[in-house]
Structures are given as structure tokens and as C-alpha cells.
């Protein structure tokens, strides 16, 4: 299976401009950082500053992560079926598979 960097990141690695960064925002304490979008910046510090202006103008977050797009590895979309097929047909991994206990309280 091939792993690779996202298409846009590959492209930008060769661009003359600033590198592309992916931005992750934690919207409040207790929640994960979630991908919000991307931006260009010359370095990590500027990326965080730009992310603040671009993605948190309305109290959207309490914490920011930025990561170079080229540093993200992704699974191969062409091999999506092979990659994710094993959970298929394994319904017994879900609680809904077990129907005989229906009606039994607190189960």
C-alpha cells in the first residue's frame, strides 16, 4: 500500500511561495483539535499567528495546532477499499448486532 502526502501539499512543496500549513482548532476544553483549514506562512510561528487571525476571529478556539502539509501522511484513496474492507461484515463489533437482549433494562 502506498502512503503519500496530500496532493495539495505535494504541489506546494515545489511552489516558490511560503509553505502550506494545516490548521487544527480546539473549540473548547475537553474537545479534540479539529482540522479547520490551511494557510501559507513562512514559519511555524507566523503560521500560528495567521491561524489565529484567519480561523479564530469569533472565539472559535482555545488552542491551535499548525503542521506543515508536507509532513502529513495520508492513506492512499485509490486503495481505500483494501484499506478499510476488514471491518465490513464484522457487525458483531457493534452493540446493535445483539438483538436478543432487547427489552432487558440497563443493557
Amino acid at each position: 500500500m502506498t502512503m503519500s502526502t496530500p496532493q495539495d501539499a505535494q504541489h506546494n512543496a515545489s511552489s516558490a511561495g511560503w509553505p502550506l500549513w494545516e490548521v487544527f482548532v480546539r473549540s473548547s476544553r475537553g474537545l479534540s483539535h479539529v482540522h479547520a483549514g490551511s494557510l501559507h506562512a513562512p514559519d511555524a510561528e507566523m503560521a500560528v499567528r495567521n491561524a489565529r487571525d484567519l480561523y479564530t476571529r469569533r472565539n472559535e478556539g482555545v488552542s491551535l495546532w499548525v503542521v506543515r502539509s508536507t509532513d502529513i501522511m495520508t492513506s492512499d484513496p485509490e486503495a481505500k477499499d483494501a484499506m478499510f474492507e476488514s471491518p465490513k461484515g464484522k457487525d458483531y463489533r457493534h452493540a446493535t448486532y445483539y438483538t436478543k437482549s432487547e427489552g432487558v433494562k440497563h443493557l
Binding site: H11, N12, S15, L39
Partner: peptide, 22 residues
């Protein structure tokens, strides 16, 4: 400032199609 932000969201999205910002 919002309009600038909107432009940047859209440029980022456009770049995913393979044309860079510059």
C-alpha cells in the same frame, strides 16, 4: 477583515485542485 478571510479560505480550497497560490 472577514472578506479577506473569505478570500483566503477560498484560495486554500482552490489550491487543493492543483493550482498554487502564487
Amino acid at each position: 477583515q472577514d472578506e479577506a478571510g473569505h478570500g483566503l479560505y477560498l484560495y486554500s480550497a482552490t489550491e487543493t485542485l492543483g493550482t498554487d497560490r502564487d
